[in-house]
């Protein structure tokens, strides 16, 4: 079976899900769309020859980070305001002005980047090779050892900062 069909299918799902993420008004729904988007991207990873990355995407991204999101949102009631006037009667113009500028900017960026890709000489390249986890491991604990250490420090800092900020106020 050709790999092209599932890849493009998954890509379409990822794009649609991502769109729902940024436009959604319910935080939990948006998170679930984000999970869908991540899983679809994981499928894409698999089909462009990175099964290990696909596994990480599912386990770490969708499985850990997004679950953290869901927990935080549900336990601390992080709904915020749902910007209800976006679809309200007189909210139409507000909605338009809120989304018009960013969309123009984003489209400009999109066109420029796509143009760069199209004119570049990467046309003959095909993502047709599988990169094994073994290679990744060798590289990660060889030349990239320092980066790994720095990443571990970053995680430690994230841990400490998360603990510190989320701690309830001593006074209240």
């Amino acid at each position: 079976m050709s790999v092209e069909v599932p890849f493009y299918f998954a890509a379409t799902i990822a794009i649609i899900a991502s769109l729902r993420v940024v436009t959604g008004s319910n935080a939990i729904h948006a998170l679930l769309y984000l999970v869908v988007s991540l899983l679809a991207v994981a499928v894409c990873f698999y089909f462009i020859g990175a099964p290990f990355a696909a596994g990480l995407e599912v386990i770490v991204y969708a499985g850990a980070i997004l679950v953290l999101f869901v927990f935080a949102v549900m336990m601390f009631d992080l709904q915020g305001d749902d910007e209800p006037k976006h679809f309200g009667r007189e909210g139409n113009s507000a909605w338009f002005s809120a989304w018009f500028g960013p969309s123009i900017l984003a489209l400009l960026l999109l066109f420029e980047l796509v143009y760069i890709i199209v004119v570049s000489d990467s046309k003959q390249l095909y993502v047709s090779n599988i990169v094994e986890a073994k290679q990744v491991g060798i590289l990660l604990y060889g030349p990239y050892l320092l980066a790994v250490e720095i990443a571990s420090f970053l995680l430690l800092a994230g841990l400490v900062a998360g603990y510190h900020f989320a701690k309830p106020d001593a006074g209240s």
């Binding site: 790999v3 890849f7 990822a14 999109l110 890709i117 390249l125």
Partner: peptide
């Protein structure tokens, strides 16, 4: 597989812009 790299990039750019 016969997926061009360009398509992957364009897919990534679309996601990024979204």
């Amino acid at each position: 597989s016969q997926i061009p790299l360009n398509h992957v990039f364009i897919f990534a750019i679309i996601l990024f812009v979204i």
